[in-house]
Amino acid sequence: MKSSDYQTMETSGNKTLRSSVNQTAFEPKIVAFLCNWCSYAGADLAGVSRFQYPPNIRVIRVPCSGRINPLYIIKALYSGVDGVLVSGCHPGDCHYISGNYFARRKFALLKRFLEYLGIEPERVQFSWVSAAEGARFAQIIQKVTNDIKRIGPFTYFKKRINTKEGV
């Protein structure tokens, strides 16, 4: 049985791997929420066009970027992913007319709030990718993955099972 150490308050804040650890060993897990009509199609196009991008993202297809509840992003971090990307249609091009405008406001607040609390700005990122922008999608994934690789794994929020009893 794997033993998981309980994260004590004193150690969980600073457990990011810095350059002292072999960085090529760290492969981040990044969740990408992609809107069905633009970003997901753009990702598809990137694949069809054989643009190469890092394999670290796990894609979750949503109908619109406005569908994304900030709870999902925080839940992803709680589950142990190292980064989250949310991508939608460019402003003005939303398939549902205005979903991405609402998303833009929501995510502005969420991103600033998480940064304020002390989570690295690179952890949660947002982008606009249209269905025709396969190359751009690959570039964005490359950037996000590079950023997360640089700042290391996310351990602040990760829920671990405490197998020891506590008083």
């Binding site: 643009f51 607040l109 947002f126 606009w128 590079n146």
Partner: peptide, 23 residues
Amino acid sequence: LATFKIDDKQEFMTEPEVNNVKG
């Protein structure tokens, strides 16, 4: 959060670093 403006600030969005894509 129940409304929006077309020109809301979006300085927080990620833009790609260009020319780093193979192929």
